[in-house]
Simulated scan of single mutants.
Amino acid sequence: MGASAEHLARRVAGHHPELPESTSGTLRFDLREGARTEHWYLTIDHQDVRVDRSAEEAELVVRADREVFDRLAEGRLHPAAALLRNDLTVKGNLRLLLTLRRLFPGPPGARHPRETACGLAGPR
Score class of each variant (00 low, 15 high):
Arg102Asn: 08
Phe69Ile: 08
Ala64Lys: 00
Asp65Val: 01
Gly92Asn: 05
Gly75Gln: 04
Gly75Asp: 09
Glu67Phe: 03
Leu100Gly: 05
Val90Tyr: 04
Ala82Val: 02
Ala82Glu: 06
Arg102Lys: 15
Arg63Thr: 06
Val68Pro: 15
Ala73Val: 02
Arg76His: 11
Gly106Arg: 06
Asp65Phe: 02
Ala81Cys: 09
Leu84Glu: 13
Leu103Thr: 13
Leu84Met: 12
Pro79Met: 01
Phe104Glu: 05
Gly92Leu: 07
Leu98Lys: 13
Thr99Ile: 08
Gly106Tyr: 03
Ala81Asn: 12
Leu84Thr: 11
Leu88Pro: 07
Leu84Asp: 15
Asn86Gln: 11
Asn86Met: 10
Leu97Ala: 09
Phe69His: 00
Ala73Asn: 09
Ala64Pro: 04
Thr99Cys: 07
Gly75His: 04
Arg102Thr: 15
Arg76Met: 08
Ala82His: 03
Leu94Met: 12
Thr99Ser: 07
Glu74Trp: 00
Ala73Ile: 05
Arg101Ile: 11
Arg63His: 08
Phe104Leu: 14
Arg85Ile: 08
Lys91Val: 10
His78Ile: 15
Thr99Gly: 04
Leu84Gln: 12
Leu77His: 09
Asn86Glu: 12
Leu96Trp: 03
Arg95Thr: 08
Leu100Phe: 03
Glu74Thr: 11
Pro107Trp: 02
Phe104Asn: 06
Leu98Gly: 14
Arg101Ser: 13
Arg102Val: 14
Arg101His: 07
Ala82Ser: 05
Pro105Leu: 06
Ala64Ile: 04
Ala80Ile: 14
Pro108Thr: 06
Asn86Tyr: 07
Leu72Val: 04
